[in-house]
Nucleic acid binder design. Structure first.
Length: 441
DNA sequence: TCTGGGGTCCTAGGACCC
DNA sequence: TCTGGGGTCCTAGGACCC
């Protein structure tokens, strides 16, 4: 049996841990640049705020309905996520951390009747120790566990949509065939994990409207007309497990750092600073998984929303002579790529750097050894040590303590135009000494 | 004025190569 | 009249997830 443990309205719940005055109020968390809503409290959902709604279109609600909007505070969310995941992990032999607010647990040889009480204990402990409310769904496949979790949430949030005893912790695996069918019939096909809006619209054209309908379709037809992925989803809904628990974290196949700018950037100089800093950050992530990149890609584009402005979007792939994780080499390559694709006369809104063709550092080292042996060269270890030292300093003194000069600096000058806006960010309560909350007795 | 970031997998056309 | 087949790389885009 699988369990899916999921934090309710996760980012909003994290903010409420340190600001209990936000309880019961409509609250949203905004994306970078305070662009759009990426998390909503139940009260905000009730006001009709949609996922991804642009802030400038809904900001009146702050005046008329008391909507509170906060800038994203990922340092806080990441830390509370770690605490929540650690507690969840202690309840089952195996755990897959699926996203910042979700993990799958795998229970083997556990009587079904006990699972709900285990789920309740887990929920209570996370709420008590971390302050985050969660829901838990149990079922024999991952897709059904996602569905059970969805039911547990809706039964709590929309009374009447499902039986009240399904709320918060729900075991679909302990239900009768009739009860399972009733749940599948009450679930729109677009709410199934893996069925997005496009596929959902196409399925409806075939007369497939609910999760129950999807389990009744011939599996070969799904593969032929849609995809293998959808075929597996349908099988999982029937209780046939097709997706395994992936509890061994695998290395990323690509690493990206991309940002929208706080305001439009026209000049090459501004883009060069941004692209340098993105390459620097991507290189850091690369080293933290002990990989080296064989290829780097840079892109820049204008805002697709400013339809009156001339549009420009280009990317370029820069091959590296051999895989590397050296910041200086990666920044140089990114800047060379940028110079290739940059054109004057456009208001650039976003840029990014992606690292691809990643190989383990050991492979890179073996290759380097071979080349040095062949060329009769001594290989200089200084570069690797330099990168280690820089990573160490940035870990200790904060990101950006040491960096490449081409990424620019905020010291003593006006904020750089390309950096993002975050006007409503709460303190990093749990990860920064200066921000620690003070309790007065 | 103002619309996120980071992933995965898949597909397709054009350039280029043998 | 009449001009192949198979492969890779690059760029771009679509679909899905959180």
């Amino acid at each position: 049996m699988y369990a899916l443990v999921d934090g309710n309205n996760f980012y909003v719940s994290c903010e409420r841990v340190f600001r209990p005055s936000l309880n019961g109020r409509p609250v949203i968390v905004l994306s970078n640049n305070d662009g759009c809503a990426i998390a909503r409290s139940n009260e905000a959902k009730a006001l009709g705020v949609k996922m991804g709604a642009p802030w400038f279109q809904i900001r009146e609600l702050a005046n008329t309905k008391g909507l509170v909007a906060l800038s994203a505070n990922f340092a806080l969310y990441g830390d509370l996520s770690d605490r929540m995941m650690a507690i969840a992990a202690s309840y089952a032999p195996r755990q897959e951390i699926y996203s910042i607010d979700e993990s799958f647990l795998l229970f083997e040889g556990m009587p079904g009747a006990e699972l709900v009480s285990i789920g309740r204990a887990l929920r209570d402990q996370v709420l008590c120790w971390v302050g985050i409310p969660t829901c838990v769904g149990f079922a024999p496949t991952k897709t059904l566990a996602k569905l059970a979790n969805h039911v547990a949430k809706n039964a709590e949030r929309k009374p009447g949509s499902y039986p009240a005893e399904y709320a918060q912790v729900f075991n679909l695996g302990a239900c009768s065939a009739t009860e399972v069918a009733a749940v599948l019939m009450a679930t729109e096909v677009g709410e199934v994990w893996g069925v997005g809006p496009r596929t959902s619209a196409r399925l409806k054209a075939y007369g497939i409207h609910t999760a129950q309908d999807l389990t009744r379709v011939d599996s070969k037809m799904l593969r032929r007309e849609f995809s293998v992925v959808l075929e597996k989803t349908a099988l999982e809904l029937q209780g046939v497990s097709c997706a395994r628990l992936e509890d061994v974290p695998t290395d990323k196949k690509q690493i990206a750092c991309t940002r929208s700018f706080g305001r439009p950037v026209l000049e090459l100089a501004g883009l060069a600073e941004a692209v340098s800093s993105f390459a620097m950050r991507a290189a850091e992530k690369l080293r933290s998984q002990n990989s080296a990149a064989g290829t780097l890609q840079v892109f820049i584009h204008t805002s697709p929303f400013r339809t009156d402005d001339p549009q420009y979007s280009r990317s370029v792939t820069v091959p590296l002579s051999r895989p590397t994780s050296d910041t200086n080499i990666l920044v140089s390559a990114a800047l060379a790529g940028l110079r290739q694709i940059y054109r004057t006369g456009f208001k650039f809104a976003k840029a990014g750097v992606m690292l691809m063709d990643l190989v383990p550092e050991t492979v890179q080292q073996a290759e380097l050894d071979l080349i040095c042996e062949f060329d009769g060269l001594q290989q200089p270890p200084e570069k690797r040590l330099l990168m280690k030292a820089i990573d160490g300093l940035n870990r200790r003194y904060g990101r950006g303590a040491v960096g490449v000069a081409s990424a620019g600096t905020n010291a003593g000058s006006a904020p750089r135009g390309w950096t993002m806006l975050q006007e409503r960010r709460t303190p990093a309560y749990t990860t920064c000494w200066e921000d620690i909350a003070i309790a007065r007795a």
